[in-house]
């Protein structure tokens, strides 16, 4: 019953990763990376690894996004490639 939910979440995960790799604006890339981490946390919680999902949601979607925004404010915001 839940397989279509996992499959659609996994599809969104791949789409978010591709967007985070291909977008030019660094802030948008950081935001998409946070979306990727949150989808990964949801998938891990669905698969029963609640401990790993809690870590991924707190660190990957929360703290890492803030630290990467701080790093983007040090370098240039737009990237040529």
């Amino acid at each position: 019953m839940i397989w279509w939910l996992e499959l659609s979440l996994f599809g969104l995960l791949v789409v978010a990763a591709l967007i985070a790799l291909s977008v030019r604006d660094m802030i948008a890339a950081v935001a998409t990376l946070s979306v990727y981490s949150f989808l990964a946390a949801t998938l891990l919680a669905l698969m029963g690894a609640v401990d790993v999902a809690l870590t991924e949601a707190a660190l990957g979607a929360g703290v890492t996004g803030v630290l990467l925004v701080g790093a983007v404010s040090v370098v240039d915001r737009r990237t040529p490639d």
């Binding site: 609640v50 401990d51 999902a53 809690l54 870590t55 707190a58 660190l59 929360g62 703290v63 803030v66």
Partner: peptide, 17 residues
């Protein structure tokens, strides 16, 4: 239950950030 020191530290640090 799921959780622990590492996750709690990350959550409280996220609040401070």
């Amino acid at each position: 239950s799921p959780g622990g020191g590492f996750q709690a530290g990350a959550i409280v640090a996220a609040a401070l950030l």
